[in-house]
């Protein structure tokens, strides 16, 4: 039997994130799993139908959303002591990356971030994670429990069955925050969220400046998608960093990922390689992006994109 403590998360609309549902699938693949989930803060109604064994609810809600996850770390650390799970699973989100690492170091146990695969047998955990920006894969063995693991979004299918978990209530202690969030400045974004878009049109250094991103926006609008970018384009200031796709940006797995003027560095592909199909437009036939793409055009975006957009509009009409 493997006891799993799963740290669940919700998006701004209170819906359970896809990454959390994917983590449930990963947990279900472990050896005879018993899955307990906790959602820092209050769990959503929907959690009561997840295909897991139990959910833990705080008897009194602590302010788990202190912005830097000190309360969430304390809450889950105390759960570790109470529940003694074998495996603690989180998704590689802002919360997961910070809380996962803090928990593991606080409890002096193993931590493996950003994993693509997790399996176990006979008290030993095996995980696979990308290293060197995704140019290589590393398999690690964690010889003894417990271990904390974060999963890269898109690595598993989201769990879609229903279940009837038992509900367990627990008391958490409030912690004194050491740093205070005094303001949150949100990037105003219209349209479909990048992480959820079925079509993503991304631009890179090859676009040469900020203006061409409006062409990408037109294409994205036409296809009902969102605009992404490489780090080079973001660092150049052509588009806000919240559009960055990649290892240190957002992970996306749309049906179609259109990469324009992007060379396909491993760190960029880390954020989009689980897309169903990658389409590349690039002047350099030897560019790495063509090794990852299903369809490609070797050409200058300035000439390729307008006729592509026209054709898309015609097909729709």
């Amino acid at each position: 039997m493997t006891s799993v403590l799963l740290i669940g998360e919700c998006d701004q609309n209170g819906e359970i994130t896809q990454a959390t549902l994917q983590a449930i699938t990963a947990a279900m693949g472990l050896d005879d799993p018993r899955i307990t989930a906790v959602f820092p803060g209050r769990p959503p109604e929907l959690a009561k139908r997840l295909p897991i064994d139990s959910i833990v609810i705080a008897s009194e809600v602590t302010d788990s959303d202190d912005g830097i996850f000190e309360q969430a770390t304390a809450d889950i650390s105390s759960l570790l002591l109470a529940k003694k799970p074998d495996v603690i699973l989180l998704s590689k989100s802002d919360l997961g990356s910070i809380v996962g690492a803090r928990l593991a170091f606080r409890a002096d146990i193993a931590f493996v971030p950003d994993c693509l695969e997790i399996s176990n047998s006979k008290g030993q955990l095996t995980v696979i994670r990308p290293v060197y920006g995704g140019s290589a894969l590393a398999e690690f063995i964690v010889p003894s429990y417990p271990a904390v693991v974060t999963l890269r979004p898109g690595s598993y299918y989201p769990a879609d069955e229903d279940g009837a978990p038992s509900i367990d209530s627990i008391e958490f202690q409030n912690v004194e925050p050491s740093a205070l969030v005094v303001d949150t400045v949100a990037e105003v974004r219209e349209g479909i969220r990048l992480e959820e878009a079925k079509v993503v049109v991304s631009g890179g250094r090859g676009l040469g400046g900020p203006e061409p991103f409006s062409v990408l926006e037109n294409i994205a609008d036409e296809l009902g998608g969102a605009v992404g970018a490489s780090r080079a384009a973001c660092d150049a200031g052509w588009i806000d960093h919240s559009h960055q796709v990649g290892l240190t940006g957002k992970s996306v797995s749309p049906d179609v990922y259109i990469a324009v003027g992007i060379s396909g560095a491993s760190q960029h592909m880390a954020g989009c390689s689980s897309s169903r199909a990658i389409v590349a437009i690039n002047t350099d036939p030897d560019s790495n992006i063509f090794r990852e793409a299903r369809f490609g055009v070797v050409g200058d975006w300035e000439n390729v994109l307008p006729s592509f957009l026209d054709a898309v509009r015609e097909l729709k009409a």
């Binding site: 050491s178 740093a179 205070l180 969030v181 303001d183 949150t184 400045v185 990037e187 974004r189 919240s242």
Partner: peptide, 11 residues
């Protein structure tokens, strides 16, 4: 943070 930034005061 994923869609913007926080302003934080720390000791």
């Amino acid at each position: 943070v994923p869609d913007g930034y926080q302003v934080i005061n720390s000791k």
